[in-house]
Write a protein that binds this DNA or RNA. Structure first.
Length: 448
DNA sequence: CTAGGGTTAG
């Protein structure tokens, strides 16, 4: 049956609203359709679901997907390729697996769009091997599916796999676009491959006529910084068009890692000139002073922050144990097992010290301001989460933590140590990548 | 001119 002209008109307006980010309006229209005696069809639903997912409203997208199924509208290939990315972003593997089951059962596996979002979903949920298996089963690869796989390897620190796939894509005559380049640069970044990154950064323009975006510059600048080539990174940023405050912040993070106070002061000023109330820059500057054991200066920055009324929102880590999510905020004592966790953590720190592991800067507390001490003392939500994982998961289980900031060098040392003494693999995911810890070693290179 | 996949780090 041909859809009525009315339905098409409604759908057009709904799609228009959803695409421009007004999902609430689009949803209201869906309800109004009933009043106009029209039943929303799969296109009406898909438009809104896709609108939500594309605008970062992943939970809303999933809720609507469920509502669509309850309204007895069958999810088709478009629904599936729109909703799978929501699982990828939320790293909800359980839901993603259910979708995968549905996809297999109804024979949507060969759809390039669906398959590439599955590749992405498994990679983002920590299952790089499954991602690769799905990728291999695909009959045809386009730029997007190659890119999803390259980015997956980059995310897991498998830079050489990522680069060789990228090369293979080029060999097969597919033109990498700017996202594909971002993926390969991310891979180089995560493995500290400076020369390779330069090669690809230049290749963008020279071989494919693509001008690098802010993200490409940011990736190279971050890589140079992490590799300790701070001056080169600084010059690189100065030469690029319109550097943002966040790109300077990346370099500031590198200054903290490499304990370069002078450069940090200089770079922090660059950030403050663009964005005077940048909380992260104050914290990074303060931590750089701490890393160089200049406690008084570190405290001074904290005091300046306080006097200006700048408050840093607390860092938060999560751990999933038996399908339940536990969140830990720095300094938080509200978890029901807090006492047990604290004991586990103390034992751990004690053992670390005994074996000569370098303690965190936050634990090297000398004659500093009491206020400052407090601000640092339990500043490691991820370690609370790890300690909780240790007391609550059986021997051999995998601990998976996600965090809203990257796994820093201090934390990295701690987890390596933990993986050794608990004799189990610990998978930690921060914003940028997965770190697989086992027997005191990490899959990612140690250079930050 | 109705709907769909892959974007740095912090």
């Amino acid at each position: 049956m041909m859809p009525s002209r009315d339905l098409v008109s409604w759908n057009t307006v709904i799609a228009g609203n959803a695409q421009s980010g007004m999902c609430g309006d689009a949803l209201a229209m869906l309800r109004d359709m009933g009043r106009a005696n029209l039943k929303p069809d799969s296109i009406s639903w898909n438009s809104i679901i896709a609108g939500c997912v594309q605008n970062g409203l992943f939970d809303e997208g999933l809720t609507l997907f469920r509502k669509m199924v309850m309204a007895k509208v069958k999810p088709g290939s478009v629904s599936l390729s729109s909703i799978t990315p929501a699982c990828a972003h939320l790293t909800t593997l359980r839901l993603g697996k259910q979708l995968h089951g549905y996809i297999t059962r109804f024979g949507f596996e060969d759809n390039v769009l669906i398959a590439s979002s599955l590749v992405d979903m498994y990679a983002k949920c920590g299952y790089i091997m499954i991602a690769r298996r799905i990728f291999n089963k695909m009959k045809l690869h386009d730029t997007v599916s190659w890119t999803a796989m390259v980015m997956g390897y980059a995310l897991h620190g498998h830079a050489h796999d990522a680069i060789s796939l990228f090369k293979q894509m080029e060999t097969e005559g597919l033109k990498p676009n700017s996202v594909a380049f971002l993926a390969v640069l991310t891979a180089c970044n995560h493995a500290g491959l400076v020369d390779e990154a330069w090669h690809y950064f230049n290749s963008m323009r020279n071989d494919y006529g693509l001008s690098p975006h802010l993200e490409h510059y940011a990736s190279v600048a971050d890589l140079l910084g992490r590799a300790g080539r701070l001056k080169e990174a600084y010059d690189f940023i100065c030469k690029m068009p319109a550097p943002s405050s966040s790109i300077w912040s990346t370099l500031l993070a590198a200054c903290r890692v490499h304990k370069d106070v002078e450069m940090a002061e200089n770079v922090a000023n660059k950030v403050f000139r663009i964005d005077p109330s940048n909380v992260g820059a104050y914290v990074l500057l303060s931590n750089t002073y701490s890393s160089a054991k200049r406690w008084k200066d570190a405290a001074k920055v904290r005091i300046t922050m306080k006097s200006k009324g700048i408050v840093k929102e607390a860092a938060c880590s999560w751990i999933e144990v038996k399908n339940k999510l536990h969140a830990f905020v720095a300094g938080d004592k509200s978890h029901p097992c807090y006492e047990k966790i604290k004991t586990a953590l103390e034992e751990l720190v004690e053992q670390m010290e005994k074996e000569g592991y370098v303690p965190d800067t936050s634990e090297v507390l000398h004659d500093v301001d009491e206020e400052y001490k407090k601000s640092l003392l339990f500043n490691h939500s991820e370690r609370l989460a790890i300690a909780f994982g240790i007391i609550s998961t059986p021997e051999g289980a995998t601990i998976c933590i996600t965090k809203n900031i990257r796994v820093c060098n201090d934390c990295h040392t701690a987890i390596k140590f933990i993986s050794k003494i608990v004799r189990r693999e610990i998978i930690v995911r921060d914003n940028s990548r997965f770190h697989h810890f086992k027997d005191g070693k990490c899959s990612c290179q140690d250079y930050w």
